[in-house]
């Protein structure tokens, strides 16, 4: 059984709407944001690591070029 008769009542929460939705909005908003940040962090670290491994592999396969300059 829904506790509310209509969507408007659910939104207004019998005059407590602003309080309830502020608390819920901040909480669910933070959870969503943190999921996005965690994914972005993981991708960023992987990208950096992959780039470094590729560069290391390139350096390892052509050592003479690096030594010419020095």
């Amino acid at each position: 059984m829904m506790a509310f008769e209509s969507l408007a009542e659910l939104v207004s929460m019998g005059s407590h709407g602003p309080y309830v939705w502020t608390a819920w909005g901040a909480t669910l908003g933070f959870l969503l944001l943190s999921v996005i940040l965690v994914r972005g962090e993981s991708r960023g670290v992987r990208r950096t690591l992959r780039r470094r491994l590729r560069r290391d592999a390139a350096v390892a396969s052509s050592p003479s070029e690096d030594q010419d300059e020095g």
Partner: peptide, 13 residues
């Protein structure tokens, strides 16, 4: 009234 619904985010947090 309905303000108690805040409990569902407040207590877990």
């Amino acid at each position: 009234g309905n303000s108690f619904r805040i409990i569902y985010v407040h207590v877990p947090a």
